[in-house]
Design a binder for these strands. Structure first.
Lengths: 325, 325
DNA sequence: TGCCACATCCTTAAGCGTCGCCATTATGCC
DNA sequence: GGCATAATGGCGACGCTTAAGGATGTGGCA
C-alpha cells in the first residue's frame, strides 16, 4: 500500500510537502499541489489513519458501549449516534455487553487501549466507577455515573407522569406499571416515580411490578405479565416502561381475552418502531432519541477538545397517542 | 498516559524487555517479569493499540457496513457479528449507509484508511466493484459482489419454496408475495423465485408486488400493502419477504377487516424478534443469522491471515410455524 | 545599485509508542 | 574450548505530523 514517501518520491518532493498538501497547511504552489494530487491518484494512495492517529495522539473514534444491540431502543440510539458522529467526521466502535457486567470494564479498557476520543456508555455497573479517573471523556446516556464527564437523559419522571395522566384521563381506575429492571440508577426508577405521584394525587389504585435482570437480557416478559395481568382481574390501564414490554402486554391481553383499548388501555415508553407495527399501534411516551444521540456525540467531541460541557442534560419527553388508549 | 518507555524507566529495564513481557515472547526471568508487572500496575499502563497496529501493519478491527441499523434484521446481524468478533479478539467499526449508495464507497475508503483487518458488507452498489482491487478482505452477506473475497447467504430460494409450500398445505388458493426491493442481486429475488416455482408446480394462482427503494429506507409499507391487499379481494395467503413487512401486513389486514389466520394466512421471512411480538406471532422462514454472522467473521479473519476461504457459503433456512398460518 | 524585510516554497529532523531483528553477555554442560 | 541456553539491550522500522529553518524571489527605500 502506497505511503506518503512513495507519493513524495513519485513527484520528486519530500514527505513534508506532500503531507502539507494533504492537510492543506502552509504555503503550497498550485503547481506542486497538482503534481502531488496526480501522484496520489496514480499510486492509489490512501492515508494511513493509524499512523496519523499515533502522531496526533488522538483518534476520530468514539467508543459506544450498549447492553443490547437487538433491543430496538438501543438499535435506534446506535443508528442516531453513528449518524451524528459521521457528520462530525467520527466513526464508532461498537461494544455489546449483553448485560454481562464484567464485560463492561473490559470494554472500557479496550476503549482506552484504542485511544478513542471519547466513550458513550449506555450501561453501567459498579466497575465503571474505577474508570472515571481516566482522562477519556465518558458520556452516559440514561445512566448516572459518579465522576462521569456528562450525562444525557430524557425526563423519565415527566414521562411517568404523562402516562399516568393520560390513562386516568381516558377513564382508567385501576392501573398497573410494568417497570423495567430497577436499581443501579436505571431510568425505570424515575418513570415509576412519576407514575406513582400522579396516581396518588388522583387517588387512583395502582400496582407496580418489576422485571428481573434475566428478563431484560432475554427480552421475554410473558410469564411475568401473565402473572401480573391474570392475578388482578380489574386492571384497566397499563403503563409499560418500554415499548418492547408493551408489545408483550398486547399479546398477553389477547391471550387472556382482554381487548385493547376497550378492556385495558396501554401506554408504552420509548416510541421506537415496534410501537407502530403492533396491532393496535401503541400509545407511548416519546423519547427524543435523535436529540439525545446528537447531544451525547457533541459532548464527547467537545470534551475531547478540552471544552467544558454541562454535567447533566435533561431532555423533555412527550405523549404520542396511538390506538392502544 | 504511561508508555512502555515510562514502564521501562520505572523498573530500570529497556522497552524491548518490557515489550517482551507484555507479549510473552522470548526469555524473561521471573524476577524481571514481576518487576515489570509491578511497574505497569503502578503507572496504570495501558498498551497503545494504535502504535501496536502501526508497527504490526494490521489492526484487530473489522469494518461492518450496513444499510440500516434500525431494521431488526441488521440489528440482529450486528449483534451476532460483534459477538463472534469479540470472541476472536476483534472489535467492530460500524458504518450505516442508510441506503445512500454514494456513502458506500466513502465508507469502504474509510475502512481502508483505518487499515481494518477486513470488511463485512451488507449493502452493495456499483461503486463497490472498484473497491475489490484492494487487498482488504471483503465478505458480503446476502449480497453478491464480483471479485469479493467471499459471500455468505442463506438459501433464499429454498425459503421461498418453503413458504409457498406451507401456505398451500394450509389450504390457500390465491397467493400474494410482497417482495423486497428487487434487482442488484438482492436476496428478495431468489425468495420470489422459489415462491413462484412452487406456485406454478401446484397450479396455484399468485401475484408478486415489489417495494420501492424509498419504502425500504423508510421501513413503511402500508400504502403499498393496502393497495395490494385491497385490490384483489380473494387473496388468502401472503408471503412477505421480511418479518417487518409481514408485521405491517398484519396491521393492514386488521384495517381491512380480514382475520389472520382465518381469512388470510401469512408467512414472513428472517425470524427476527418482531415476528414473535406481533399479535398473532408470525410464521416465518428462519434465517440462521447467528451462523451467518459467525461464518462472515471467521472468513474475514481467515482471509486477513492469508488463508483461502470458500467463495460462497450457502446456509439452509427452515420454517418456523407460529400463529399466522 | 545595494541592502533589508518579508512572503513563498520546500527540507531536515525529531518525534508518536510499539515491535522485531541482531547483538551482547553470562551460565552451564560435555 | 566449543556450544547450546538464558537474559537483556540497541536500534531501526512502521507512516505520519510538525517545529524550525534554509533557499529563493519580490518590493521598498536610501
Amino acid at each position: 500500500m502506497a505511503t506518503l514517501k512513495d507519493v513524495a518520491a513519485e513527484c520528486g518532493l519530500t514527505v513534508t510537502t506532500v503531507s502539507r498538501v494533504l492537510n492543506n497547511r502552509g504555503y503550497i504552489s498550485d503547481e506542486t499541489r497538482a503534481k502531488v494530487f496526480a501522484a496520489m491518484e496514480k499510486l492509489n494512495y490512501t492515508p494511513n489513519e493509524v499512523a496519523r492517529s499515533l502522531s496526533k495522539k488522538t483518534t476520530n473514534t468514539i467508543g459506544v458501549i450498549v447492553p443490547h444491540i437487538r433491543h430496538p431502543y438501543f438499535a435506534e440510539m446506535i443508528s442516531n449516534i453513528e449518524n451524528a458522529a459521521s457528520k462530525k467526521g467520527y466513526k464508532i466502535i461498537l461494544y455489546n455487553t449483553k448485560g454481562r457486567n464484567n464485560k463492561e470494564k473490559e470494554y472500557l479498557d479496550m476503549c482506552t487501549s484504542n485511544r478513542v476520543a471519547g466513550i458513550i456508555l449506555f450501561s453501567s455497573s459498579i466497575a465503571v466507577q474505577e474508570f472515571t479517573d481516566s482522562k477519556i471523556p465518558l458520556v452516559t446516556v440514561e445512566r448516572f455515573v459518579e465522576n462521569g464527564t456528562a450525562a444525557v437523559e430524557c425526563d423519565n419522571k415527566q414521562g411517568g407522569e404523562l402516562a399516568a395522566k393520560h390513562l386516568i384521563e381516558q377513564g382508567c381506575k385501576r392501573l398497573l406499571n410494568v417497570s423495567g429492571v430497577k436499581g443501579n440508577s436505571m431510568p425505570a426508577d424515575d418513570r415509576t416515580l412519576g407514575f406513582e405521584e400522579i396516581c396518588k394525587k388522583n387517588g387512583i389504585y395502582y400496582k407496580v411490578v418489576e422485571t428481573e435482570i434475566g428478563q431484560y437480557n432475554s427480552l421475554d416478559y410473558h410469564e411475568m405479565l401473565e402473572g401480573a395481568l391474570g392475578l388482578d382481574d380489574e386492571i384497566d390501564g397499563v403503563f409499560a416502561s418500554s415499548d418492547l414490554i408493551a408489545s408483550q402486554v398486547l399479546q398477553v391481553c389477547s391471550k387472556l381475552g382482554k381487548r385493547v383499548p376497550e378492556d385495558i388501555k396501554l401506554v408504552g415508553f420509548d416510541d421506537v418502531m415496534i410501537s407502530q407495527i403492533t396491532n393496535p399501534p401503541i400509545s407511548t411516551i416519546h423519547q427524543p432519541i435523535k436529540e439525545m444521540a446528537s447531544a451525547a456525540v457533541d459532548m464527547v467531541v467537545a470534551a475531547s477538545e478540552g471544552k467544558t460541557v454541562p454535567k447533566r442534560t435533561l431532555l423533555p419527553v412527550s405523549l404520542v397517542k396511538r390506538e392502544s388508549t
